[in-house]
Amino acid sequence: MDRYGEAICADLADRGFDLEALWDQRRFEFILAIVDHLPRNSAYMQALTDDEDWARAVLARPDPDEPAPASVRLADWSPELEMLTNLYDRLGELVRVVAMTGGGKPSRPKPAPRPRTAIDRIRARQRKAKHARVVRAMLPHKATEAASPAS
């Protein structure tokens, strides 16, 4: 609260809550629940991402083996954002086609991030597991190479 209290107070006030009253009522779990679900354009997130000490702490963490794919929170996914994302993707395709007409060989543009739900994550794990089973069955020497860490 010392570091981000002002931003949290502003975000709670925007949502009709009085931080001081909640604090006096010792409703700490309620406050944390709201703060944990603030959108990325909240005052709290702005204060957090502008904090160099926080940034250093995040960068000091070891990288995960596999970075998480870029995603948009479903709570932030509005019909307007969906349409803008679709336009962004189509524009990337158009740029690629124009470059190809000039003789270029551009790579396919990466689509803009979309929300990833639990269903999406489970499907991705199932596809990966199925791929691993096929590799083990069809190319056993590749499966053992992939399983052993690189030297």
Results as ranks from 00 to 15, higher is better:
Ala43Ile: 08
Pro69Leu: 11
Leu87Glu: 06
Asp65Ile: 09
Ala118Lys: 08
Asp18Trp: 08
Met100Ile: 03
Asp50Met: 10
Tyr88Arg: 12
Arg73Glu: 12
His37Lys: 14
Ala33Thr: 11
Ala99Ser: 13
Arg116Met: 11
Pro64Leu: 13
Arg136Ala: 15
Leu48Pro: 09
Arg114Phe: 00
Ala75Phe: 07
Glu29Thr: 08
Leu91Glu: 09
Pro67Trp: 14
Leu32Arg: 06
Tyr44Gln: 02
Ala70Gly: 09
Gln46Trp: 02
Gly16Pro: 00
Arg73Phe: 10
Gly103Arg: 12
Asn86Trp: 08
Leu94Gly: 14
Ala129Ile: 10
Ala70Glu: 11
Ala70Trp: 10
Thr49Glu: 10
Leu81Trp: 08
Ala70Phe: 01
Ala75Asn: 04
Arg61Glu: 09
Asp36Ser: 14
Asp14Thr: 00
Glu93Cys: 08
Arg15Tyr: 06
Val98Trp: 08
His37Asp: 15
Ala124Leu: 12
Glu66Arg: 05
Leu32Ile: 05
Ala124His: 13
Asp120Cys: 06
Arg108Cys: 04
Pro69Arg: 02
Ala70Val: 08
Leu81Gly: 03
Ala99Thr: 09
Asp14Trp: 07
Arg136Val: 04
Gln25Pro: 03
Asp50Thr: 09
Arg116Ile: 01
Ile122Met: 10
Gly104His: 11
Met83Asp: 03
Phe17Trp: 13
Val97Cys: 02
Leu87Asp: 03
Thr49Pro: 00
Met100Thr: 13
Ser78Arg: 11
Leu81Met: 13
Arg26Val: 12
Gly103Phe: 07
Arg40Ser: 10
Arg56Glu: 11
Ala132Lys: 14
Lys110Ile: 06
Arg133Asn: 05
Arg136His: 15
Trp54Asp: 05
Arg27Lys: 15
Arg108Tyr: 08
Arg40Tyr: 03
Arg114Ile: 07
Val134Leu: 11
Arg96Ile: 02
Arg56His: 01
Glu20Pro: 03
Val35Phe: 09
Lys105His: 10
Phe30Ala: 10
Val58Ile: 13
Leu74Lys: 05
Ala132Phe: 06
Ala112Cys: 13
Asp120Ile: 08
Glu52His: 01
